[in-house]
């Protein structure tokens, strides 16, 4: 990613809330791509997004958006960012026309024609209260707002949670179309990894406030496998490479780096790990580590 121009760069971001902390979170999103930002609930995705938007004050580290500092230049950055939260942050009792009247003056590049065209395209009624929209319609509405002020970076925080498959599919198509403009970018936080597998070019996985993986999605897919079989065929060497080892009556399963498959006996089977698999196993590994630590104490 180093030779590409980054639309978003986070370096060593640290932020502590009580017993939770973001630990040296670093990743970057190049222009023209979609990044899936995944992790289990409470892993720090929303805190990271709030930090990007200067809604949370970071303890240390640096966030740059469009090459500008997220704290010093937050106003200029917000002019060029579209944000879609998991819930509607606009007046629910207002209709789309009233919302436009509210927001238009804040954005230099607001395009009323494009806004109305998007509403029509997304089949969103102009005169209906937006609070009466379905969840899918609300998400599409927030995207319509973001696109109408010509946002170059769209940040979505769990937009697909609670959406039916059709609405999710529509939303992902919209993002796919948006990213056809190579000067734009999308940071897409979710725990529905199938959405990420479908549209993301890059993936950042957060685990307990730290980046577990960040990079190209396709590279991640080549890096890990799920190993299954009878435990008796496991050597100590292989066992030491396993992540999230789970033993059950008829055998075991675990995540293993593809490099670690060298020397694995034929009696054990492996298959490509999905992002979902990776999330599940690293979560298990994290829990085991916690238990081990607690036992040692």
């Amino acid at each position: 990613m180093a030779d590409m121009e980054n639309i978003l760069e986070i370096t060593d971001l640290c932020k502590t809330y009580g017993d939770f902390s973001l630990k040296n979170v670093s990743f970057s999103l190049p222009k023209g791509f979609i990044m899936g930002f995944v992790g289990e609930n409470g892993s720090g995705k929303t805190t990271t997004i709030r930090s990007i938007l200067d809604m949370a004050h970071i303890d240390s580290g640096k966030i740059t958006v469009f090459g500008m500092d997220s704290m010093k230049d937050s106003i200029a950055i917000k002019e060029r960012i579209g944000v879609v939260f998991d819930s509607l942050y606009l007046g629910q009792h207002l209709n789309a026309k009233q919302i436009e009247a509210q927001l238009k003056p804040f954005y230099k590049d607001w395009d009323s024609e494009a806004y109305l065209r998007r509403l029509d395209e997304f089949e969103l009624p102009v005169d209906k209260k937006i609070g009466d929209f379905s969840k899918g319609m609300k998400m599409k509405f927030m995207i319509a707002v973001a696109l109408s002020h010509k946002a170059e970076l769209i940040i979505l925080d769990e937009p697909t949670s609670g959406l039916d498959p059709v609405a999710r599919d529509e939303l992902l198509d919209i993002l796919g179309e948006f990213i056809e403009n190579e000067n734009c970018g999308v940071l897409f936080s979710t725990h529905i990894t199938t959405d990420v597998e479908r549209i993301a070019d890059y993936v950042t996985i957060l685990q307990d406030g730290a980046v577990w993986y960040t990079g190209a999605k396709d590279e991640l897919a080549e890096m890990y496998a799920v190993l299954k079989g009878d435990e008796k065929y496991l050597t100590d060497d292989i066992k030491s490479k396993l992540i999230g080892f789970h033993s059950y009556r008829n055998g075991f399963d675990a995540l293993i780096p593809v490099d670690g498959l060298v020397g694995v006996p034929d009696s054990l089977v492996y298959e490509r790990a999905s992002i979902d698999d990776i999330l599940v196993y690293i979560s298990k590994e994290h829990k085991y580590a916690k238990h081990r630590k607690a036992a040692e104490v």
Partner: peptide, 18 residues
């Protein structure tokens, strides 16, 4: 009341104003 109902406090974090 509208702010509470609609989670509109977040608008402070989205609008390009201090």
């Amino acid at each position: 009341q509208f702010e509470d109902k609609g989670d509109t406090n977040r608008i402070c974090g989205v609008l390009p104003v201090k």
